[in-house]
């Protein structure tokens, strides 16, 4: 039984049909990139997986248990084994870096001592330890991104959703971002679904790539095939 199973997912906003019969399976610890052009419905798909958005039709299952079924959200976001890194990061302006990790752990009932040690370790691993007491307003763009990843990793999710986390970065920052992705992948055994239109990110993630074309999700193929080179990837997207 696949860890994550998505079948027949459909969603429209008004007359615009964003997702049509999208479906895929993902094994525990698997890696999948959803590639598509801007506005192709990638983020909507991710949000449905997280339980933040309703579908019109289709089913999302975790370990065979339905989490979303048609318009019904059977498992609310906080009961799913999922964390997400948002495109705009979604940091909490009035909490320190440390609190971004500690507070979710506390909310999930992790004992205080364990929460502290996990927080310390993760901050150290992602190079945020010296900034532990800062608030997001006083972080650089790169530091803020690291924090968003650290927060998503702290509760040790089984599925990590990444919504174009390195979009619109300059080449240097993007290279740093990819390095960060490597660090993150090394730090987690979670399955990862990445949404992007950047072949380098898809290559860095590895696993498989599914291209979203006019709301229809093509069957996943190995990343090495779809992203063999930038030109191949561009052609795949252009067809969508």
């Amino acid at each position: 039984m696949p860890f994550l199973s998505v079948t027949g997912l459909a969603r429209s906003f008004g007359r615009s049909q964003v997702l049509v019969e999208a479906g895929f399976d993902l094994e525990r610890g698997g890696r999948l990139t959803i590639a598509g052009r801007s506005g192709s419905g990638k983020t909507t798909l991710l949000r449905i997986l997280a339980g933040l958005e309703r579908a019109d039709r289709g089913v999302v299952r975790f370990d065979g248990v339905a989490a979303s079924d048609g318009r019904r959200i059977l498992l609310p976001p906080w009961r799913r084994p999922v964390q997400m890194v948002f495109q705009d990061l979604g940091l909490w302006p009035n909490r320190s870096v440390r609190r971004h990790l500690l507070d979710p752990l506390a909310a999930q009932g992790v004992p205080r001592a364990e929460a502290r040690s996990r927080t310390r370790a993760l901050l150290a691993r992602l190079g945020l330890a010296p900034l532990a007491r800062r608030r997001p307003g006083r972080l650089s763009g790169g530091e803020a991104r690291r924090l968003a990843f650290a927060r998503a990793l702290a509760p040790e999710p089984e599925l990590l959703l990444l919504d174009e986390p390195f979009a619109s970065l300059d080449p240097v920052a993007r290279a740093e971002g990819l390095a960060l992705l490597d660090e993150v992948l090394a730090a987690t055994r979670a399955a990862v679904v990445l949404v992007t239109h950047d072949p380098a990110e898809a290559r860095a993630l590895g696993g498989e790539v599914a291209v979203l074309r006019r709301g229809r999700l093509a069957p996943p193929r190995p990343a090495v095939e779809v992203c063999a080179d930038d030109e191949t990837f561009r052609r795949e997207l252009a067809e969508s």
Binding site: W78, Q83, G90, L91
Partner: peptide
């Protein structure tokens, strides 16, 4: 409030957070 900030809290710590 940024929607993503709210949703991140919802995912990370549920309605209470």
């Amino acid at each position: 409030q940024a929607a993503s900030s709210h949703e991140a809290a919802l995912l990370a710590g549920g309605p209470r957070l």
